[in-house]
């Protein structure tokens, strides 16, 4: 085979630039487990092209995954994970992959793909509970990964993390956790142009995963600064 034609073929399969993308994902630990929030927008460039994209998925019994970035890359990743979980279940031996294992696996996949100069264009949040142990971590398209009590991707890193640093507590109840996430999501709806006011919050505890139906937050746009944002910034549009 002509080496050049192979190169061209492989080039065409790479995500050189993301097409349909989702924006921030926020995850926090709380008293009984982990909560993850994401809106349902799918942006085609800066056009809000899709409004019902589910970006929160359960992975096996003990893990919950939230994704921002390229939606089709996320879907491919879900295919890998389905295979992984199926294979794990097929052993039928009482052992199962926990959130730590899934996070590590994702890290390997992401870093491996970036080393082929063919990254999966996502930032992921992976939360879970296994053996009474809460787990929350993140990994991005180049394989950078870490764990924390609260994590966020994309714009959430700038807008949500400062709030979480102030207000997050280890013993947050479910209601308090949801309220905290909604506070962060509301800020993102106001200030992140890609964010939309239709979101889901998923929780994972020892009992399992529950993903909320989509819902909206109450907003108030009548502040004068919102009405005329360029006032006092002459020359900008």
């Amino acid at each position: 085979m002509d080496p050049n034609s192979r190169l061209v073929m492989e080039d065409s399969q790479r995500t050189l630039t993301p097409y349909v993308t989702g924006t921030s994902v926020i995850g926090i630990k709380y008293k009984d487990g982990v909560l993850i929030a994401a809106d349902m927008g799918g942006s085609y460039g800066s056009t809000l092209r899709y409004k019902s994209v589910e970006r929160l998925k359960a992975i096996g019994k003990h893990s919950l995954l939230g994704a921002s970035g390229e939606i089709s890359d996320f879907q491919e990743l879900l295919r890998y994970l389905d295979g992984l979980i199926l294979y794990d279940n097929m052993w039928d031996d009482g052992n199962s992959l926990g959130p730590k294992e899934v996070h590590s696996y994702l890290t390997r996949v992401m870093y491996n793909r970036r080393n082929k100069f063919n990254p999966l264009w996502n930032s992921l949040v992976l939360g879970g509970v296994k053996n009474g142990q809460k787990y929350l971590g993140t990994v991005n398209m180049i394989g950078v990964h870490y764990q924390d009590n609260h994590v966020a991707t994309g714009f959430g890193n700038h807008l949500a993390i400062p709030i979480l640093r102030d207000e997050w507590r280890e013993d947050l109840s479910f209601e308090e956790g949801v309220r905290l996430l909604e506070k962060c999501m509301r800020v993102l709806i106001y200030r992140d142009r890609s964010a939309i006011n239709k979101l889901q919050i998923a929780k994972i505890t020892a009992e399992g995963v529950t993903i909320s139906p989509p819902y909206s937050l109450k907003t108030f746009w009548e502040f004068s600064a919102f009405k005329n944002p360029t006032a006092g910034a002459e020359g900008s549009w």
């Binding site: 052993w91 031996d93 052992n95 992959l97 926990g98 730590k100 294992e101 590590s104 696996y105 390997r108």
Partner: peptide, 15 residues
Amino acid sequence: SFTYESALPVGRLVV
């Protein structure tokens, strides 16, 4: 260990 950062279950290795 490299992939999952956890120990391989004994039963699986034996299989």
